[in-house]
Write a protein that binds this DNA or RNA. Structure first.
Length: 348
DNA sequence: ATCCGGGACT
DNA sequence: AGTCCCGGAT
């Protein structure tokens, strides 16, 4: 047997008996699919029953008030799903006279229905040959075929959609889609998949190469840290006070200017009240000029940088500080943003 | 306490 | 690319 036949066979023997299966009513399937987005079956189940009881058809749903929908949705999270459902129900009422569409091309136009949900409803309700690609499908295909392209990259999404389309059982697309997802949810799980009893492990690249735990590959969504750099421009004659950076942080061992980092954007007045600033520059700091705040993007940091020109005070020199003439600035390794800030002032 | 999984919209 | 949310796993 081939891949899809094995999976369908497995599905028929192992599927859970879920209330939204064994119906071809696109409204009921829609209800279940939206509720199950980003939601586990056990958590979504009671909501599915409540919604179906209160709104047995799309017309009753369309007549609801948004407050009612959100109240009924309470606790499920991603509340835009509920708001989009109401819009879609009203749209179906107007455009399709209350008959919920079951073709991919009509479904995809509706609010809150993307590629996955359109393919799911169209294939389950009308056996349209559209392959679903959800988290389960990504995982099953990545492992079985040994695809290392990240599933959350733009190219990866294209690749996996194409592979899923190629593998789709064109005779029984609904059954095939259900089987792929149920297999991923029940057997080919993210953690501790049951490879020991897997019917397709003989053809599974990940199983054969011991890569089940590493697939699928997902790009780390590096959470971006925000930092606020307040630089001080202090000149004396044609010299400028520069700072050689340490070797731990960004721009290791390069040159910038004396600065104070804050974790919020302070006004200049607030900034100058910071004790570590008066400790160095004294209490009567005269601000001559303040640059706009420049946003500088790094891989995992967002820097908000500004340059504050102050009148020279008798100051306590830091050991990493150096006075350098403006003519010699070009000899120092300057981070891009520092170069920009200085260039604006000195026409470097 | 922190991380992870999961579709669609903007 | 960032944002929306929660529950289960670690």
């Amino acid at each position: 047997m081939n891949f899809t036949d094995e999976l369908v066979q497995w599905y028929l023997n192992n599927k859970r008996d879920l209330p939204w299966r064994n119906t071809t009513d696109p409204y009921v399937i829609w209800l279940s699919e939206i509720i199950l987005q980003q939601t586990r079956v056990e958590q979504g189940m009671p909501y599915f029953y409540r919604f179906l009881e209160k709104y047995p058809n799309v017309s009753s749903f369309a007549a609801a008030h948004e407050d009612e929908i959100l109240k009924l949705w309470q606790g499920l999270g991603y509340y835009s799903r509920g708001r989009n459902m109401l819009k879609t129900a009203q749209l179906v009422q107007e455009l399709h006279s209350g008959r919920f569409p079951d073709s991919y091309d009509e479904l995809i136009k509706l609010k809150g229905i993307g590629e996955y949900t359109a393919a799911a409803i169209a294939s389950f309700a009308a056996n349209e040959a559209k392959a679903v690609v959800d988290g389960n499908v990504y995982r099953v295909l990545a492992r079985y075929l040994g695809i290392y392209e990240p599933i959350n990259s733009t190219g990866g999404k294209k690749t996996f959609q194409k592979v899923a389309d190629d593998f789709l059982n064109k005779k029984f697309p609904g059954l095939h889609n259900q089987a792929m997802m149920e297999f991923g949810a029940m057997l080919c799980k993210p953690k501790n998949p049951n490879c020991g009893i897997c019917p397709i492990r003989a053809g599974c690249v990940a199983f054969k190469t011991n890569a089940v735990a590493t697939l699928p590959v997902k790009l780390k969504t590096v959470k971006v840290r925000e930092r606020f750099f307040n630089y001080f421009l202090i000149t004396e004659g044609d010299t400028i006070l520069m700072n050689k950076r340490g070797d731990k942080d960004i721009w290791a061992n390069m040159f910038d200017l004396p600065m104070t980092e804050t974790d919020t954007l302070l006004t200049v007045e607030e900034l100058l009240k910071q004790p570590e600033i008066s400790a160095v520059f004294g209490n009567s700091i005269k601000v001559i000029e303040v640059s706009p705040v420049h946003k500088h993007i790094l891989t995992h940091q967002r820097l908000f940088v500004r340059l504050i020109k102050i009148e020279k005070q008798p100051l306590k020199m830091h050991q990493n500080w150096v006075k350098i003439s403006v003519q010699n600035l070009h000899e120092l390794a300057l981070p891009k943003i520092i170069f920009i800030l200085l260039k604006n002032i000195f026409n470097l």
